[in-house]
């Protein structure tokens, strides 16, 4: 196994699962999320700088997953085939976890405006700081704060109603 393949394997074991879950929350489709993350991993070592610097590689993976998720959602909107596949897949009536109905939560996330959804996922699932979330989303920290505030408010009100 050459150097880049060994590095790629290490990176996969460390970050693939978490990035995959983040992608699922962003695109609400497990298969599409796998495609997004795998494509990001295939490209991560196109640059020798990222091969030498693990932090740069991770930052690239996060940005790429976010950007590819955005592209995927845009394509769905354009083709009018936007489907809440997570809702369909997780449509069992008794699937409450920690007191939250998964169907309700997935539906609520899918209904958030794109930027609010991204901010909420990055801040409250990936646990990124406001500054780092802003950097990845290429917006200001103030905008991240606003997106999160509105997103959380909307989600929590929905969840409280249904729980």
């Amino acid at each position: 196994m050459d150097e880049s393949s060994a590095e790629l394997t290490d990176l996969y074991h460390e970050h693939y699962s978490r990035l995959l879950r983040m992608a699922v929350l962003l695109v609400d489709d497990g298969a599409a999320a796998e495609d997004v993350v795998q494509d990001a991993f295939m490209r991560v070592f196109d640059s020798r700088a990222r091969l030498r610097d693990r932090d740069k590689a991770l930052a690239f993976l996060r940005r790429t997953v976010l950007n590819k998720s955005r592209s995927l959602l845009r394509r769905r909107q354009v083709s009018r085939k936007y489907q809440h596949r997570l809702v369909q897949r997780e449509s069992g009536p008794d699937e409450s976890v920690h007191g939250v109905d998964r169907t309700v939560l997935a539906d609520a996330i899918a209904r958030l405006p794109p930027r609010q959804r991204e901010a909420v996922v990055l801040r409250y699932y990936a646990d990124f700081s406001e500054a780092y979330t802003a950097k990845i989303m290429k917006v200001t920290p103030g905008a991240v704060k606003a997106y999160c505030s509105r997103g959380v408010s909307r989600l929590s009100s929905l969840l409280r109603e249904r729980v």
């Binding site: 699962s17 879950r21 796998e34 976890v97 920690h98 998964r102 939560l105 409250y124 699932y125 999160c148």
Partner: peptide, 29 residues
Amino acid sequence: EQLVRNGLHALVADVEPSATALPRVLAGR
């Protein structure tokens, strides 16, 4: 925020990579 955080983590808690994920990544690379 804690409610949302818990909800998000719970929502994808059972999402795991497919068995062929790593071979596909390496082959694609």
